[in-house]
């Protein structure tokens, strides 16, 4: 009896490690990054595109735009292919094929991001340079690589959402004479809507946060990209590229870049959590 109480206490304390970890990360990222944001008054830091660490000017506007551009591109590709794959897996593929395809998609998630980046460099970048012009290292290349990388996230969460729709919805629609695609479009996707939205937001979080693959294919030049064929630098790449040799205010500015990224991610996380909680609630009402 007493032993069980001790065990329960130990488990409780251990269970708090995830939230403590999150708290520690928040505290230390902000402690390192906030001072410079407060010193420059924020406006200059976020809204100036002038990043010249040697001269002491730190503005991350171009990187914010870079992150946004690359993420938007990635979401277009990731959502079209990821959701398409989820629909095929749940609505059209025979169960035996789906059973093979699902682990294959999960394997896609296991491949190191550096390998994706590398593949982008050796195949995609020359292709873009030769066919479409520009340096090849570009928003477009980064978007395609990231799109493939977020695909497993989007697919697996969408598959879960679609599978959670009661079988009777599908049968009811088919019984009314709807084709499979009509049923998918008008019944299944509608019923699974909030799950799919959660999938998109979590995929977006992955795209915003990805670092190594983007460094390898995006070109990393500090300027606001004028077209999808222009190179760009994202928030994540900025940190990874310069952290190795930064010190003083420069390092603080990199942590401040981290703070920006952290806030964006936490907002996306919270939205995704509330959306998926809503979809769980909808499920329990059925």
């Amino acid at each position: 009896m007493k032993k069980d109480k001790i065990i329960a206490a130990i488990l409780t304390v251990t269970a708090l490690s995830a939230i403590s970890g999150l708290a520690l990360i928040t505290i230390f990222i902000f402690r390192e990054g906030m001072p410079i944001i407060l010193r420059t008054g924020g406006g200059e830091f976020f809204l100036s595109a002038d990043w010249r660490p040697r001269d002491g000017s730190f503005g991350i506007f171009s990187m914010i735009i870079g992150s946004l551009a690359v993420t938007a591109g990635a979401m277009v590709i990731g959502m079209i292919f990821g959701l398409g794959l989820a629909i095929v897996l749940t609505q059209f593929a025979p169960p035996s094929l789906a059973a093979v395809l699902k682990p294959v998609v999960e394997l896609l998630a296991g491949i190191p991001s550096v390998v994706y980046g590398f593949m982008g460099v050796v195949t995609l970048v020359p292709l873009i340079r030769n066919r479409l012009g520009g340096p090849g290292l570009s928003v477009l290349a980064a978007s395609i690589v990231l799109g493939i990388m977020v695909l497993p996230t989007v697919t697996s969460i969408s598959v879960d959402a679609l599978q959670a729709v009661p079988r009777s919805f599908w049968e009811g629609s088919i019984a009314l004479g709807a084709t499979r695609w009509q049923t998918t479009r008008m019944v299944m996707l509608k019923a699974a809507r909030s799950g799919i939205v959660a999938a998109a937001i979590l995929g977006m979080g992955r795209a915003v946060g990805e670092t190594m693959a983007v460094i390898m294919v995006a070109g990393n030049s500090i300027e606001i990209p004028g077209s999808i064929l222009a190179p760009t630098r994202t928030l994540t790449s900025n940190i990874a590229l310069e952290m190795g040799y930064a010190s003083g205010a420069h390092r603080e500015a990199l942590f401040a870049t981290g703070v920006t990224l952290f806030v964006i991610i936490m907002i996306l996380n919270c939205v995704a959590l509330s959306v998926s909680r809503r979809s769980a609630r909808e499920r329990s009402f059925r």
């Binding site: 269970a15 999150l22 990360i25 230390f28 990222i29 946060g209 952290m243 996380n269 959590l273």
Partner: peptide, 29 residues
């Protein structure tokens, strides 16, 4: 709810942020 929130948020944090944190906390502090 708090524990799950912690785990869910941790799952969404990009690796570069973990890197920054590990660098100040484990390596320096």
């Amino acid at each position: 709810a708090v524990i799950r929130f912690g785990a869910d948020c941790l799952a969404g944090i990009p690796s570069i942020i973990f890197g920054l944190f590990g660098f100040v906390f484990f390596a320096i502090v």
